[in-house]
Amino acid sequence: MALRILLLNWRDMDHPEAGGAEKYLVTVAEGLAARGHEVIFRTAAYPGAVQEEVVRGVRYIRKGGRLGIYPRALAANLLRRYDADVVVDVQNGMPFLSPLTRHRPVVNLVHHVHKEQWPVVFGPRLSRAGWWLESRLAPIVYRNTDYVAVSDSTRAELSGLGVDANRIQVIHNGTDATPLDAEPRSNQPSMIVLGRLVPQKRIEFALEALAQLVGEMPTLTLDVVGSGWWESHLLERVAELGIDQHVTFHGHVSEAEKHQLLARAWVHALPSLKEGWGLVVVEAGIHGTPTVAFSEAGGPTNSIVHGRTGLLVDHGSEAFTQAVRSLLVDDDLRDRMSGEVTTWVSQFHWDETVAKWEQALLRSAGSR
Rank of each mutant, 00 (worst) to 15 (best):
A263Y: 00
Y147E: 11
R11T: 01
I286F: 04
I243Q: 09
E208Q: 15
L213H: 03
A297C: 04
V26W: 00
R185S: 00
W229D: 09
R185I: 06
T27Q: 06
A75W: 15
E231N: 07
N144A: 14
E236W: 07
L158A: 04
G160N: 10
V55I: 13
V141T: 01
H111R: 08
F249V: 04
Q245E: 14
F122W: 13
V87A: 09
D223V: 01
L361P: 00
Q359N: 10
V28E: 04
V253D: 01
V148F: 06
P189K: 05
H268L: 13
D85F: 00
G195C: 08
I40M: 14
N108H: 02
V313R: 04
H306Y: 07
V214R: 15
D83W: 04
G130T: 08
L97H: 09
S227H: 08
L327F: 04
T175A: 07
V55T: 09
L213C: 14
V324N: 02
L222M: 11
D332K: 15
M94D: 05
H233P: 01
Q200A: 11
T248E: 12
A284Y: 08
T291A: 15
L328E: 00
V193D: 06
V107P: 00
L270P: 00
A156R: 09
W229P: 06
A138L: 10
A209G: 13
V87R: 03
V26A: 07
L137M: 12
A149M: 08
S232T: 11
R42Q: 10
V141K: 03
G31L: 09
R264K: 14
E208V: 12
I192H: 07
T219C: 13
V282N: 14
W131F: 07
R104V: 14
V28C: 03
A360Q: 14
R143L: 08
L74V: 11
F249D: 01
S135D: 01
F320R: 09
